[in-house]
């Protein structure tokens, strides 16, 4: 198995993803199978091949520096779970 339950814990922390302790073994097995699937990439000779991050060879389109957005706070904050005085609220972050 390529990944251990401890590995899963570590990656889950990186992704801030709550995983139940009981699910760790199963996930480690699943992810190891997924890695087995992709393992054949390692055998491919990619020397000198440019990595392809975007399908189109298009260049970036840019916009003019114009402010077209106006205050939409009430609408945009409608889905927010916790608000006060226009701020989004989260548990106190200790600096």
């Amino acid at each position: 198995m390529l990944l251990t339950p401890d590995d899963i814990k570590q990656i889950a922390h990186l992704a801030r993803l709550g995983i139940e302790e009981a699910a760790l073994d199963h996930l480690a097995a699943d992810l190891s199978t997924m890695l087995d699937l992709v393992e054949q990439l390692q055998a491919v000779d990619t020397e000198g091949v440019e990595p392809m991050a975007h399908p189109a060879n298009a260049s970036l389109l840019m916009r003019d520096d114009i402010v077209t957005e106006s205050d939409q706070r009430d609408v945009l904050q409608a889905p927010a779970p916790a608000l006060q005085d226009g701020y989004f609220l989260v548990p106190r972050v200790i600096e």
């Binding site: 990944l3 590995d7 899963i8 996930l27 990619t46 990595p51």
Partner: peptide, 30 residues
């Protein structure tokens, strides 16, 4: 979704980027 987030975070993480993500992008080019 959890499986994919985990495998994706793993593939981008320090020490694995070249072996997984970059390699996959090169294969994508091929």
């Amino acid at each position: 979704v959890k499986r994919r987030i985990l495998i994706g975070a793993y593939a981008l993480s320090a020490g694995y980027y070249d072996a997984y993500y970059k390699k996959a992008q090169q294969v994508r080019q091929l």
